[in-house]
């Protein structure tokens, strides 16, 4: 059985958003999708190299889509009614959809509502089982001020990503690699600019 390797990592923050130019629809996306897309972009991986149906996309969303849910719900009484676009993002897996659309990745998806402690091992398992050959793992912690107030935790905006593959890479993934944030901080590649 081939070992699973970390081939790339990234870590992005809210401060990285204003300079992001990730397509003409970027401003339409909800904050979580924006952060997720930015994290994937910052991996610096050329997805064209791979068969799209062999690349899985896995996400851990710390509070699901609650930040967007609150935004949608608070806007419901506006003249004209609530936003159909925003409703489409009131799902934690919407960010996966946006990643898949942008990079044309058609492999299987996983999405957990939680922090990312099982994300890497579940993604590695997908590869071990042969359901995918590569996995884009994204961990999002998007808690807006309104969501923070609702569930009484501190606000935060951050995302990090790891690209997993078989056989070779920066280093082997081990069972001790549970904390994606520190993993990505230690390995961070320079972010793509522009």
């Amino acid at each position: 059985m081939n070992k699973i390797f970390i081939a790339a990592t990234s870590k992005v923050a809210a401060a990285d958003l204003p300079s992001a130019r990730l397509g003409p629809r970027f401003a339409r996306l909800d904050l979580q999708s924006q952060m997720a897309l930015l994290a994937v972009e910052s991996l610096g991986v050329d997805f064209q190299e791979f068969s799209p149906d062999r690349v899985a996309v896995c996400l851990a969303a710390k509070i699901g889509s609650l930040s967007t849910d609150v935004e949608f719900w608070n806007g419901r009484d506006g003249a004209g009614g609530p936003s159909p676009t925003l409703f489409a993002y009131t799902l934690p897996s919407a960010a996966i959809g946006e990643i898949a659309i942008r990079h044309k990745l058609t492999g299987p998806n996983l999405c957990f509502v939680d922090d990312d402690k099982i994300l890497l091992s579940e993604a590695a398992d997908l590869i071990q089982r042969g359901e995918a050959d590569y996995c884009v793992c994204v961990s999002c912690a998007v808690v807006t001020a309104a969501a923070a107030e609702l569930i009484q935790i501190p606000p935060e905006t951050g995302a990090c990503a790891v690209f997993l593959q078989r056989g070779e890479g920066l280093r082997e993934l081990t069972e001790f690699d549970r904390d994606m944030k520190s993993l990505c901080a230690n390995f961070c590649r320079p972010k793509i600019s522009g």
């Binding site: 009614g81 936003s83 159909p84 676009t85």
Partner: peptide, 18 residues
Amino acid sequence: LGLDSIDALELVVMLERD
């Protein structure tokens, strides 16, 4: 402009709002 079906729905909202 390359708009899609959800954009059409947003325009419906805009028509009512504005």
